[in-house]
Simulated scan of single mutants.
Amino acid sequence: MRMSQPEYPQQPYQPYGQQPYGYPQREADGATTALVLGILGLVLCQFIAPFAWAKGKGVLNEIDASNGALGGRGSAQAGYIMGIIGTIFLVLGILAGIVWVIFVVFMLSSSSTSTY
């Protein structure tokens, strides 16, 4: 009878820069900040939204450049998307304000020039 060598489980392939299986990834600096800015920019104050957009994009670029060594992609991406949506709301609000001011000025100028 021939004895076989014990089989050891193979290690999964790890691309360069990624943490081995079982080790938690370090979260990228600014991922949570982008998420919080995105939430605040969407819900509370739309003037914060462009900062969330820029911060989220920067953190996503940092995570992509780390080749998987950094985590927090979900938080950064959520802040990035909420920043875009909040910025759209900001632009629409500014445009609505401009249209409202033009309407009010037009109504005031037309009512003051009318004769009875």
Rank of each mutant, 00 (worst) to 15 (best):
A52N: 02
L37Y: 15
L92H: 03
C45E: 13
L35P: 01
Q46V: 01
T32M: 03
P15Q: 03
G71Y: 10
V104K: 12
A52F: 06
G74T: 13
G58V: 05
Q77R: 09
S109A: 11
P50E: 10
S66N: 08
A78E: 07
L95H: 03
T33F: 04
F106H: 11
G86M: 08
I48D: 00
P50V: 09
T32Y: 05
A34K: 03
M1R: 06
P9Q: 00
G56I: 06
A34C: 01
S110K: 13
V43Y: 06
A54D: 02
I85N: 01
I85G: 02
P6A: 13
K57Y: 12
E7R: 00
P15N: 04
I84T: 05
Y80D: 03
S112E: 05
Q18K: 11
I85L: 15
S66I: 08
Q46T: 04
L44A: 15
M1E: 09
V59W: 04
Q77C: 06
Q10D: 15
S112G: 08
Q14H: 11
I85R: 01
S66W: 08
S110T: 12
P24A: 12
Y116K: 14
V101S: 07
Q18G: 04
L60E: 14
P24C: 02
T32C: 01
I48H: 01
M1V: 06
S66M: 08
L95E: 03
I63L: 05
Q19G: 01
S4C: 11
N67Y: 13
K57P: 02
G56S: 10
L60Y: 02
T113V: 11
L37G: 01
S111C: 08
Q18M: 15
I81M: 11
I88P: 02
T32D: 11
N67Q: 14
P50K: 03
P50T: 07
R26I: 10
V104F: 10
I102R: 07
S111M: 07
W53Q: 03
C45T: 03
V36L: 02
L60M: 15
S4H: 14
G72S: 10
L44M: 07
F106Q: 11
S75M: 11
F106D: 05
P9W: 00
W100R: 15
G58Y: 06
L70T: 08
T113G: 12
C45Q: 13
D64V: 00
V36M: 06
R26C: 00
A78T: 15
M107L: 15
Y13D: 14
F47R: 06
Y16A: 13
V91Y: 08
G83K: 06
S110A: 10
I98Y: 05
M82C: 09
I98W: 03
G58P: 06
E62L: 13
A76E: 09
P12D: 09
M3S: 14
V43F: 08
R2I: 13
I81W: 05
P50L: 10
G56H: 09
S66H: 09
G83C: 09
Q18I: 00
I98P: 03
Y21A: 05
Y21G: 00
G68E: 04
C45D: 14
G79H: 10
G38H: 03
S109H: 08
Y23T: 15
C45A: 13
P15S: 06
G97S: 06
A65D: 14
P50Q: 10
P24T: 07
G58R: 10
Q46L: 01
G58T: 07
V43P: 01
S4T: 14
F47Y: 09
E7F: 05
A78Y: 01
